[in-house]
Amino acid sequence: MSSQNELSLLTFRSLCDRCRQESERFFAQKEHDPRFCYELFRRAFVHGNELAWECLYDRYQKLVLSWVTRHALYAGLGEEASYFMNRAFEKMWQGIPADNFAKFPDLKSLLRYLQMCTHAVMVDFARWKEQAHLWDRATQVNDGEDEYDPFATIMDPDMRPEREVAHQEMQAILWQRLNDLCNSEKEHLVVHGYFVLDLKPRQIFDIHSEHFADVREVSRTKDNFLARVRRNDEFREFLENA
């Protein structure tokens, strides 16, 4: 009888207990067997077993909470860590249809995906929360220099409530224009982090370290982008007519 068949014959309670024991061994940096927790994931996603999902939620919620609280964005989001933990589990649940479970060959790949879901829900929340801050941040692109500010003409600090809808629409248009001016994935990551999420270069690097050699590259990418925006006559005309 194969190892998979043996696991499939285990009762739910036995499987959940073994998953707990092996997880504790893993976090204690001892030898452990990941098959039991993986089998719980299989039953949850392939068979829609709610009890298996509840056991996994109970087993891994502390791990997800640790990812949330260590995330570079967490301190500025203004939400409890448990909110993002629950959103991460929901995103994972929605993101793995039964037919796609085979794409995750082991427990490590499943936990890596859960960590990606945690990052994604926090970035999405930050983008939603900070979208309006794009405008205030944009007025600072010159860092006090006496040169043309390509964003200042669309700023309205005394905006009235009846103009809020139009303001939000203009935000979306401006963000799309900024995206269109990006020449690379690196520029897109930096522009989104700087303008939308209000992150410092160090924070952008912490989140996207796989794309940049160091923090200085993040700063150079930002500075080069802003310099190109200032020279772009079409973008300047767009802002003047906004």
Rank of each mutant, 00 (worst) to 15 (best):
M170T: 10
C37I: 06
V190A: 05
A44W: 10
I204T: 15
Q115G: 08
E240S: 11
S82I: 11
N183A: 11
M1P: 10
E80Y: 06
Q131C: 07
E50L: 13
F212G: 00
N183W: 11
D136T: 11
Q94W: 12
W128D: 09
E31L: 08
K222Q: 09
A81L: 04
L65P: 00
L40A: 11
L9K: 13
Y194P: 00
E164H: 11
D124R: 12
E31T: 10
M85S: 12
H167W: 12
K200C: 03
R35A: 15
L110D: 01
K222I: 01
R231W: 04
P157D: 03
E162T: 01
R70F: 07
V165D: 08
E39Q: 15
H211F: 15
N241P: 00
E240D: 07
R70C: 08
N183K: 15
D33G: 03
L73M: 06
C16M: 06
R177V: 00
E130I: 04
D33A: 07
E50C: 08
A98R: 14
L110I: 14
M170N: 12
V165L: 12
R177E: 14
P97I: 02
D146R: 13
M116P: 00
V64N: 02
Q61I: 06
P201Y: 11
N49F: 09
W53S: 08
D99S: 13
N224A: 10
G78D: 00
D180I: 00
N179M: 11
E24G: 09
V68T: 05
R202Y: 08
A132V: 13
N232I: 02
S82H: 08
C19N: 03
F45I: 05
I204W: 07
R25N: 10
Q61T: 09
H208D: 07
E162V: 07
F238E: 02
S82P: 00
T118P: 06
P150G: 02
L181M: 12
A152K: 13
E31P: 01
L107V: 02
C19L: 02
E147D: 05
V68F: 05
Y60T: 06
R20T: 09
D106I: 02
P201D: 02
R87V: 09
S3E: 11
A28V: 00
I173M: 15
K200A: 09
I154N: 06
I207C: 06
W93Y: 15
N241E: 08
R202V: 11
A213C: 03
L239R: 09
D146L: 12
M170R: 15
W175L: 14
A88C: 09
D146Q: 06
T139Q: 15
D106F: 06
S3G: 08
R236K: 15
S66K: 10
F125D: 01
V165G: 02
L178A: 02
P161Y: 10
L239S: 12
L107H: 03
F125A: 09
K129T: 06
W93H: 14
F212L: 01
P201L: 10
G193P: 04
Q21G: 04
E237G: 03
D198H: 14
L111Y: 04
L15D: 02
Q115N: 09
